[in-house]
Amino acid sequence: MDDVRVPISSDLDLVRAREQGRVLAGQLGFQHSDLTLIATAISELARNILRYARRGEIVLQQAQDSGVPGIVIIAQDEGPGIPDVNRAMEPGYSTAGGLGLGLPGVRRIMDEFEIVSEVGHGTVVTVTKWKR
């Protein structure tokens, strides 16, 4: 399967990215409750792109680990970046009056989580969920 790339620049794109993630994860054989976790993680990451960087993209890839399929979600933007990533990962920390639960929540519901951010250059969040 080819990578699925969903450009994010409006809140309709967010709904689209969620749906695409659901479709891909469904094709990979994820069970129903995992589809919801995956769609929710995409929603949080895509909204952060929209809110903080205005535009960016969600890339969906399939992964394999000794026969176990997984889905990789890459959320990337060339926005302002995050000055203090450790703080941004704390539950309740928000610079936008949000709940501050997006990033820490996504880390909790996915199996692997990586964030690379550079002020003035942008942010890349890469998360993976393995099929159970």
Binding site: L37, P91, L101
Partner: peptide, 14 residues
Amino acid sequence: IQPEVAFTMVRLGL
């Protein structure tokens, strides 16, 4: 609120 949605909300801390 659907069961999977409730499950996800709890895990997110919502």
